[in-house]
Amino acid sequence: MYKGPIFLEPVFKERIWGGTKLQAEYGYNISNELTGECWGISGHQHGPSRIRNGELEGWPLDRAWNEHRQLFGNLEGSEYPLLVKILDAQTDLSVQVHPNDEYALEKENYSFGKTECWYVISCEEGAQLVYGHHAESESEFAAMVEQGEWKKLLRQVSIQPGDFFYVPSGTIHAIGAGTMILETQQSSDITYRVYDYDRRDADGQLRDLHINQSIAVATYPHRDPVIEQTEAKVQDLTIKQLVEDTYFTVYLWKLNGTAELVQEFSFLQVSVIEGRGTLYADGKEYPFVKGDHYILPATMDEYRLEGDAEMVVSHVTI
Rank of each mutant, 00 (worst) to 15 (best):
W118F: 08
V120Y: 09
C123H: 04
V84M: 14
A104F: 12
K85F: 06
Y110G: 05
E108M: 08
S78P: 06
C123R: 00
L105K: 15
V95Q: 10
Q90F: 08
V84D: 14
A104C: 10
Q96P: 00
G126I: 03
C117Q: 14
Y103T: 13
S94Q: 08
E124I: 08
L87K: 11
A104D: 08
Q96T: 01
S111L: 10
G113A: 10
N100Y: 06
E108R: 13
E79M: 11
Q90N: 13
E116L: 06
A89Y: 04
S122N: 09
S94R: 11
Q128K: 14
G113N: 11
P81L: 01
E102H: 14
G113I: 15
C117N: 13
N109S: 14
E102N: 12
H98M: 01
V84C: 07
P99G: 01
Y80S: 07
F112R: 13
E108A: 11
Y80H: 07
S111Y: 12
K114I: 07
I121H: 00
A89F: 04
V97Y: 04
K114R: 02
D101W: 02
Y110E: 13
L93T: 00
D92Y: 08
Q90M: 09
A104L: 10
I86S: 03
E106W: 11
S94P: 09
Y110K: 15
V120Q: 04
Y119I: 02
Q128V: 13
Q90E: 13
C117R: 09
K107H: 15
W118G: 00
Y119A: 02
H98T: 09
W118Y: 03
I86W: 04
T91S: 11
L82H: 12
A127W: 11
